[in-house]
């Protein structure tokens, strides 16, 4: 069985992240680039399954600028057997639909039995990619799973939705996304880090995917046509600290009065 995990290099949330106010794009030089933790969890989940069941090939895939390739080495060090990096300058600022088309083309090329993603990235927070890929690849999608069980011909799990827990299943091939509930990602061991250097890391350009893009009805020329535009980006003024008091026995009463003043109590 071949499982492809979609991973995403993102600006590290431990520091201040910067959006270029001129282009509206992420200023990637301003922050350290790391693998998004939720995608590491997706990878961890799949690697554990592979370790337990054997006969599973785990591939990490991303569409990201060329300079973020070190994050794929980390995915390999964690235990992925191979990595695919779609890197093409023409994809800078690609919108959601174009991103989905390119990833779908690469997934079609890779031929996965199961595609696993995080439920939403820390920089985009969209959470729509799995269903977009499902639509393009004509696969069932089970999104935002909190538990997961992968068998030879199906994937099942549960998810928290409006007012309760839903048990869902999909026959393979399928796409799933997982949430924070999945196990913490491992730190790559030295052996993994050394081994990662020898593992295959394939770099694909848009031209390499031209045939597959055509196949899903999204030819290469579509890259040039933006569907949505960012009109404005502004840095929100930093929130100013209000009044800070030290409790002298009256703080509770102060808070109650503050809430009453603002009609919040």
């Amino acid at each position: 069985m071949k499982i492809v995990v979609l991973v995403k290099p993102v600006p590290d949330t431990f520091g201040d992240r910067v959006l270029s106010l001129e282009t509206g794009l992420a200023d990637r030089a301003a922050s350290e680039t790391v693998l998004d933790e939720i995608t590491e969890r997706a990878l961890e989940t799949v690697i554990r399954h592979a370790e337990a069941s054997g006969d599973v090939e785990v591939v990490a895939m991303t569409m990201a600028p060329a300079e973020s390739q070190s994050t794929l080495r980390k995915a390999l060090a964690m235990g992925a057997a191979a990595a695919v990096h779609i890197a093409d300058e023409r994809l800078a600022g690609a919108d959601l639909v174009r991103t989905a088309q390119v990833l779908a083309a690469a997934l079609r090329r890779a031929g996965a039995d199961l595609v696993v993603t995080g439920n939403g990235s820390t920089d985009g927070s969209g959470g729509v990619m799995p269903s977009m890929l499902a639509e393009l690849l004509e696969l069932p999608a089970a999104t935002r799973l909190e538990t997961i069980e992968i068998t030879a011909d199906a994937v099942r799990g549960t998810r928290e939705t409006d007012g309760g827990t839903q048990a869902v299943t999909a026959p393979l091939p399928a796409i799933v996304s997982i949430t924070e509930r999945m196990p913490d990602p491992r730190f790559p061991a030295l052996k993994g880090i050394m081994g990662a250097k020898k593992k295959p890391l394939e770099v694909l350009s848009l031209d390499d995917l031209a045939g597959e893009l055509e196949g899903i009805g999204a030819p290469l020329e579509e890259t040039e046509e933006p569907r949505s535009i960012m009109l404005a980006a502004a840095q929100r003024p930093p929130r100013e600290a209000g009044e800070i008091i030290t409790d002298d026995g009256t703080a509770a009463e102060r808070i109650a009065a503050f809430l009453a003043d603002r009609r919040l109590a």
Partner: peptide
Amino acid sequence: PHSIEGADAAGRVAVRLRAPLSVD
């Protein structure tokens, strides 16, 4: 709504119609 089901429908339809998609 940006719920599980809302996001799933939005993603699928945006792809199908090649429509601009604004999330969250």
